[in-house]
């Protein structure tokens, strides 16, 4: 599948486009942009999945005013940019806070939305959208909702290979590098005692090799694994790819960032809020999370979030781990 020899990597711009990202949802999106269908439209996607690229297309086609919301922003930022023409509002997940009185800005925005007759395109984080749909019936306010789809393996491979000037050499995993069963040890508490118990898990790489008929191209296997661990999310795939150092890459080198310990409830909830916001204001989080400093310290040490200048950000390569950890607990 591609050149197997290279090292390092100078990054070029992305070739992602709205039709690729939206898949079947591109048709209704295009109808809204061309005026055949009435909006407002909600563009919903995972963090780092390429929502901005879809919104770029809306800005270009509609010649719209783009409003990018940041943590702490509200409906005033949107009203201030109102020039009567079409608008594209990015990061609408910043319009609510998870506290009593935290839906006021969102409610005001939806009231404004009900009274406009121009095209409005909004961008939403998928986790925030799911929560607001469950808690506030948000989906009822948007007659058109389009979702950013996971990219297939070959598309991710194509985009990664075309994105960098230099590529590492793709090398097959050595058969003796690991068996089908990989054993990790976990601390388990039982009646006040803590014991370290071996926990066997199936190695996806070993299983793939087991059922492979003959020698697979290491490039295909590497990108297959990259697509699998990133859930087809191009931003996450890029972050995992760039996290790998060295002149050679093996399929088993492709792994998302994970935390080895079980998160306590407060940590999981904090992570869920950051996952839903992508960038969260530390002051806002402190109103909701007990012992925020310690919680953020532990999440930072685990490599799941970064904290800079009062802003807590989700680490792209840790997105699959963050989603899995919070969904295992059923957090909204």
């Amino acid at each position: 599948m591609g050149d197997n020899r290279a090292s390092g990597g100078t990054r070029r711009g992305s070739d992602l486009d709205a039709p690729t990202l939206l898949g079947q949802d591109y048709e209704p999106f295009e109808e809204v942009l061309s005026g055949e269908m009435a909006g407002p439209v909600a563009v919903v996607g995972d963090p780092f999945s390429g929502r901005a690229t879809v919104l770029d297309r809306a800005v270009r086609d509609l010649d719209a005013t783009r409003i990018t919301l940041n943590p702490g922003d509200g409906v005033d930022q949107i009203r201030a940019s109102n020039n009567g023409g079409p608008i594209v509002v990015e990061n609408c997940q910043h319009l609510y806070e998870r506290r009593v009185g935290g839906f006021a800005e969102l409610s005001a925005f939806l009231d404004d939305l009900a009274n406009v007759n121009r095209t409005v395109v909004t961008g939403w984080n998928r986790y925030a959208w799911a929560y607001l749909t469950a808690a506030q019936g948000l989906d009822r306010e948007f007659p058109v909702t389009v979702e950013v789809q996971p990219l297939p393996t070959d598309r991710i491979a194509e985009l990664i290979l075309s994105r960098y000037d230099d590529m590492p050499a793709f090398v097959a995993d050595e058969p003796e590098r690991g068996g089908i069963i990989v054993t990790t040890r976990h601390e388990i508490g039982w009646r006040g005692r803590s014991i370290s118990v071996p926990f066997p898990t199936v190695s996806p790489v070993a299983v793939t090799e087991l059922f492979a008929d003959g020698d697979l191209d290491p490039t295909d296997v590497t990108f297959g694994r990259l697509a699998a661990v990133s859930d087809g999310n191009f931003g996450v795939a890029t972050a995992i790819w760039e996290g790998h150092q060295g002149g050679e890459v093996r399929p088993s080198d492709i792994a998302p960032l994970t935390s080895d310990r079980n998160l306590v409830y407060e940590e999981a909830f904090c992570l869920r809020l950051v996952l839903a916001k992508e960038r969260a204001d530390r002051t806002q989080l402190s109103k909701v999370i007990d012992g925020l400093d310690r919680v953020l310290g532990r999440l930072s040490r685990d490599g799941l979030v970064t904290v800079t200048d009062g802003i807590v950000e989700l680490v792209p390569a840790a997105m699959p781990a963050a989603a899995a950890a919070t969904e295992r607990r059923g957090l909204l």
Binding site: R99, V100, A134, A135, Q136, F269, V288, L332
Partner: peptide, 17 residues
């Protein structure tokens, strides 16, 4: 409204259709 918001914003809540 306050009680409703306190419920749906709780970290322990499960809400859907």
């Amino acid at each position: 409204t306050i009680v409703e918001e306190a419920m749906v914003t709780s970290k322990y809540v499960y809400v859907d259709g």
